[in-house]
Computed example of a mutant assay.
Amino acid sequence: MRLLTVLLVILLALLQYRLWFGQHSIADYFRQQEELRTQQASNQELEKRNRLLRADVKDLQQGLEAIEERARNELGLIREDEVFFRLFSQSAASGGQ
């Protein structure tokens, strides 16, 4: 009976060691949970960016207004019948003096 008790205590100790310190331990579980939360946050940011890009692509595919707006803002283009004025402030024109 004593031998059986000693064997069961040793078995329990080995199982406890594996539970707390071995492969697939509780520490690994908590580390993986943290990695999962980090990855989910990253995925949410990427999903948000993808939604914005899809909306941008949809606008560019459907109408000329989005294309015209991009051409004006990013390339500085104007129409033939338009006049472009650029205004400078007084401090910028005098070289900052």
Rank of each mutant, 00 (worst) to 15 (best):
A71S: 12
R86Y: 02
E34F: 00
V57T: 12
L36E: 13
S42W: 05
A93K: 02
R31W: 09
Y29L: 11
L52E: 13
A93G: 00
S91N: 10
N73K: 14
I10E: 04
S94D: 13
R2E: 13
Q23E: 12
R51E: 15
R37G: 00
L7R: 10
R31L: 12
L64H: 12
I10G: 02
M1T: 06
L3D: 12
R31Y: 07
Q32P: 00
S89Y: 04
R51M: 08
D59H: 10
D59E: 14
F30W: 14
Q44F: 08
E69V: 08
E34H: 05
L14C: 09
S89E: 12
L4H: 09
N50G: 03
F88V: 03
T5R: 13
L12V: 01
S94K: 09
D81W: 08
E45F: 06
E80D: 13
L7F: 04
L7T: 04
Q40N: 11
F84K: 15
L19M: 06
R31N: 09
D81R: 09
L46W: 04
K58M: 02
L87F: 14
T38C: 01
Q90T: 01
L14N: 04
I10N: 02
L4D: 14
F85W: 10
D81N: 15
I67P: 05
Q16V: 13
H24E: 07
E65H: 06
E47A: 14
D28C: 01
S94E: 10
S25W: 02
N43H: 11
F85H: 09
G22Q: 01
T38K: 10
I78E: 06
E35A: 14
R70V: 04
R37W: 02
H24I: 04
E45W: 02
Q32K: 08
Q40L: 15
A71E: 11
R2V: 10
R2G: 03
A41S: 11
S25K: 00
L60C: 07
F84L: 15
G96S: 07
F84E: 15
V83W: 09
Q44E: 15
L15S: 01
E35R: 14
R72L: 01
D28R: 05
E47I: 11
L12E: 04
L36N: 08
A27W: 04
I78P: 00
E74V: 07
R2D: 12
R72V: 10
D56E: 15
E68R: 15
E35N: 14
L4Y: 12
S89T: 12
S42G: 10
E69A: 13
E80C: 04
M1V: 12
L15T: 07
E47V: 07
L64C: 10
V57G: 02
G96C: 01
Y29K: 02
I26L: 15
L36G: 00
S91W: 07
T38P: 00
E69H: 13
V83E: 11
Q40V: 13
S91V: 14
F88M: 06
L8I: 01
Q23A: 12
G95H: 01
L7K: 13
Q39P: 00
M1S: 11
R18D: 10
D59N: 15
